[in-house]
Design a protein around this nucleic acid. Sequence first.
DNA 1: ATTTTTGCAAACCTTTTGCATGGAA
DNA 2: TTCCATGCAAAAGGTTTGCAAAAAT
Lengths: 146, 146
Amino acid sequence: MIGSNPIVEALSAGGYRMTGPRRAVADLIAGHDGHFTAAELELAARERRLDISRATLFRALDLLTELGVVERLDLPTGEHAYVPCAPAHHHHLICSRCGRATDVADCGVAEAVGEIARRSGYRIDSHRLELFGLCRHCQAKTTTDA
Amino acid sequence: MIGSNPIVEALSAGGYRMTGPRRAVADLIAGHDGHFTAAELELAARERRLDISRATLFRALDLLTELGVVERLDLPTGEHAYVPCAPAHHHHLICSRCGRATDVADCGVAEAVGEIARRSGYRIDSHRLELFGLCRHCQAKTTTDA
DNA sequence: ATTTTTGCAAACCTTTTGCATGGAA
DNA sequence: TTCCATGCAAAAGGTTTGCAAAAAT
């Protein structure tokens, strides 16, 4: 967990100052592989006695979203959550149980989108696909632990 | 605009009471073919001197969402919006300029989703695809009127 | 030294809730 | 007449902002 953190790297690559709070947020996120809400992150920070004000936390999340190392997504419940991810186009596959998010390559989505464009006459500029289900691990554990 | 309104129908089919506010919301939505936020709908109601309290408006939107005649979606900006739609699985193609939303049939998305499931090992329970672009009409009007 | 970032606290915006009143069936 | 739905107003979230102090370059 010590060592290169892609988020830290993105910050310095972007010319942003490396501050305590930002580093803390970066580490918090890096040590977390599911999606998380701002509130959850705040709680995690408090538990580890990292003192980050809410405003700073939101500002950091905004920044990281802009840098593309984190993406904001909308859960089916309407909650806003964030997932760490590589700054490239991809889709998110989210486990409804453990919250783990996996980046998904295209797998034919682009083609389908092209077909939709053709049929509708729209010029499609962007699309967002969010997939929800159970990861392999959680399927195996049937409905055991929380 | 007088006559059958699918929203009104869905309400009565669902066994809900047909009240003034609900009818007003139904008409407001039916007379609007783009997406809209709760705030926009509230404004529209006020302009037409329809007196609907905010609480009622939100309650109506919830109800209509449950009935599946309206769907809540998340714009790229993070705003919550609603679109009127048929109660079946489909995707939304949204014009970034005029806000009009079109329901889109599958066009190969299901296959792509299947492929993603196969490769990832996830059991995919649901997915949501939102497409953003310019409708034919707005493409034609290049960048003219708002 | 300069510029960015932070923390605080208040403001804001959106959505929800409790409860008494009013309206549909 | 009996429930369901509404309005109000307050509360509850979630997120943003202004500004002075603190920290990074």
